[in-house]
Amino acid sequence: MSWTVFFVAIFSSMLINNVVLMKFLGVCPFLGVSKKTNSALGMSAAVMFVMVIAAFVSYLLYYLVLVPLEIEYVQTISFILIIASLVQLVEMIIKKVSKKLYKSLGVYIALITTNCAILGIAVENITSDFAGQYGLFPGLAVAVTTAFGAALGFGLVMFAFSSIRERLEGSNVPEAWKGVPVSLITAGIMALAFAGLGGIVG
């Protein structure tokens, strides 16, 4: 296994298989929290935090608990419970450690349980069979890197989209298309641009 694996993992999960625009994961916060650049960045930071930890924990849970017990089919329920309790835990820790951070991230963290990007990346890391390709622990590294790249991609798109929306506020959009419709079309055009990146790496 060479270092390029990590580069490819970050590059492909950030840009080519962008969680929001290509995989449609995390569309709710994408549309809901992207009115202002500041809140978009806050949400992205919270997502990155939870996504990386969730990828780490869910990968270990799957290969060290579910596989030896041969109960892979409870994957969904165990992952969502892990993520839900993780979100609680992270919220508590942030609250204890830094009041300031909690003030800026707290609101978003509570929303993350139902952000399908978190569960989506956790499940996809398992279906990608990193453990089979690279071995258990190198696979873990790749899985966590993929999650990190996905979170970066989420942040990138959130930031770009919120900047576009701030500009859209001031522009003369026909009344019927104001708000969500024009945002969705904007997102569609962004997705077209991202589709052009397909094929750079596998």
């Binding site: 625009l21 290509m22 995989k23 449609f24 969705l184 079309i185 569609g188 997705a191 077209l192 589709a195």
Partner: peptide
Amino acid sequence: GQAPGGFL
């Protein structure tokens, strides 16, 4: 049929 079409 692909990703962008969904949004559009």
